[in-house]
Design a binder for these strands. Structure first.
Lengths: 248, 248
DNA sequence: CGAACCCTTGACAGAAATCAACTAAGGTGG
DNA sequence: CCACCTTAGTTGATTTCTGTCAAGGGTTCG
C-alpha cells in the first residue's frame, strides 16, 4: 500500500474513530491492488471475503437475473462497498466491476468481524455506515415505486444540480446507458424522456445538461429529501458525493 | 408492560445478547401501548423518537409521494421497525400504520443510542440486524428492477410456498391490494396477472392460492436466493417469518 | 338494511420495452 | 495519418405492458 493511502483510509467515517492499534491490525491483513477497466471484481453469489475500499477510479455495483442486468450503484473514491455481506458472512447480493482503471484496498472480512467486536467505537461507525446504506436503498426503492420514469429523471437532474451547488448546467458523471439502468429504464427510454424534458425546463447537449427553468423542473420532479436524500452538505458517508447513488 | 412481554422481547435477536443490566435500563424507559386498526403510528419525515417492537397485531410500512402511496413492508410479531432512523437520529423515511389492532412497545431512541455505545454485544446485534435489513431492501430493489410484474408475482408465490414448507396450497396472508402495492403494481394489474398465471401452473380461489404445476411456475419465477431470500429456516431476524417483506 | 370496501372485469389511454437502423465519436492497427 | 472497427447514443416503428377510469358483484360491519 502506498504511504499516502493509509491516512486517507484512516480518515473515512468508517475508520476514523477506531483505536489506532485496531486500525493498524485491520490494515495488517489488507492490501491494495490496481485493476484495469471493465474487470469483474465481485460476482454475486460468491462468499464475501473482503471489504473493498475504492482509492481511485470508479466501481459499478450491479445485479443480474435471468439474462437481464441492472446498475445498483456507482462507488467513487473514497468509498467502501459490500460491507453488509462481509458482516453477515453471507454471499454477495451484487456484482461489482471497474468502470475505469481503479485502485482498491481489500480488507479481509474475518479481521473486520473480529475487530468490531472488540472496538466499540468501530462498531458504532459500522452501525452508522450500515444505517446510512440502508436508508439509501430505501430511498432508491421509494423512487422506483412512487415515481414514473420521467419523474425519476427529473428528480435525479434536480438533485444533481443541487449537489453541484445549484448550478444551472453540469456534465453527466456517468454514461447515459448506466444512468438509465440505475434509474430503472432502458437507454432508449432515457434518451426519449430526456428530450421530452425540454418542455419541463431542461435542455441537453451531449453529456451536458442545462436547467433552463428550475421552477418548471421542480414542478415535475417534486424533490423530496425523503427520496432524493439530504440536500447539499449531508452526503451521508464519504467525503466525496456519490455519483449515482451509494448503496454498498 | 405485561409480564410475559419482557422475556419475549429479550429473546429477540436484537436484544438477546446484551447484558441483563443494559436490557433492564433499556426497558426502563420503554412502554407498551395498544393501538386500534388503521391507525397511523409514524409519519414519514417526523423525527425518530422511538424504536418500535410489534408484540401482537400487524403493522404496514408505507411511503408517500405526490399523492401516490406504496407498501414497503409488513411487520408481524415479534418484529422491530425503523431501527435505522433511530440510529441516525434522522427523520423517518417511511410511515407506519396498524393493519389490525396491535400492541407495540416503544423504546426511546436516546436510550437505544446510549446503550449500544457501552454494550459491545448489543452493538454487534444492531450491526447484524441492520445488515439484514439492508440486504432485504437490496433484494426488493433487485426484484423491482430485474423482474416484470408477472415474474414478481410468480416469484413471490413460489417463495411463499417454500416458506410454508413447499405446500401446494396456501392462503394469502395479506389483502391483495396490499400485496399489489408491495410488489409495485396496481390492484387491477395484480388481479389480471394472477388470473393469467393459470397458464403457468397457479390457480386461485379467493384468497387461496394453489400451485398446480410447480415446474411451470418455477420456469417463470426463476427463484433466486439472491433476490427472494434464503429458503426456509434462515428467516433473517424474527422468530416468525415476515409476511411480505421486512425492511424496517 | 345500508354503507363501505375489496375484488374483479372491461374499455381505453399512456408508458415503456423491443427490434431495427443509423449517426457519431473514440480507439486500434495498419 | 488514415481506414476500420467498436460502441454509445439517437430515432423510428411496433408491440407489450401497465395505469386509469368506470361499473358491478360480493362481503363485512355498523
Amino acid at each position: 500500500m502506498r504511504p499516502h493511502e493509509l491516512p486517507e483510509i484512516r480518515h473515512l467515517p468508517l475508520f476514523r474513530d477506531m483505536l489506532q492499534a485496531n486500525f493498524e491490525a485491520l490494515m495488517q491483513g489488507a492490501y491494495a491492488q490496481a485493476f484495469p477497466a471493465a474487470l469483474e471484481l465481485i460476482r454475486e453469489g460468491d462468499p464475501a471475503d473482503f471489504l473493498h475500499v475504492v482509492i481511485s477510479g470508479t466501481v459499478e455495483l450491479y445485479a443480474r437475473w435471468g439474462g437481464r442486468e441492472c446498475t445498483m450503484a456507482v462507488i467513487r473514491p473514497l468509498g467502501t462497498f459490500i460491507l453488509a455481506a462481509c458482516i453477515k458472512d453471507a454471499p454477495y447480493l451484487m456484482s461489482a466491476r471497474t468502470l475505469e482503471r481503479a485502485r482498491i484496498v481489500l480488507i479481509p472480512t474475518s479481521d473486520l468481524r473480529a475487530i468490531f467486536r472488540r472496538d466499540p467505537e468501530f462498531a458504532v461507525s459500522v452501525i452508522q455506515e450500515l444505517a446510512g446504506c440502508y436508508r439509501a436503498v430505501v430511498r432508491h426503492a421509494k423512487g422506483l415505486k412512487l415515481r414514473t420514469s420521467r419523474e425519476r429523471i427529473a428528480s435525479w437532474l434536480a438533485h444533481r444540480s443541487a449537489l453541484c451547488g445549484n448550478v444551472a448546467s453540469f456534465v453527466l458523471p456517468v454514461e447515459k446507458r448506466l444512468l438509465a439502468s440505475y434509474l430503472g429504464m432502458t437507454p432508449e427510454n432515457l434518451s426519449r424522456a430526456l428530450k421530452s424534458l425540454e418542455a419541463d425546463g431542461v435542455t441537453m447537449d451531449g453529456m451536458r445538461i442545462t436547467i433552463t427553468d428550475r421552477a418548471r423542473l421542480h414542478a415535475l420532479a417534486k424533490p423530496d429529501r425523503l427520496i432524493d436524500g439530504p440536500d447539499p452538505a449531508g452526503a451521508s458517508s464519504g467525503s466525496h458525493p456519490p455519483s449515482v447513488g451509494n448503496e454498498g
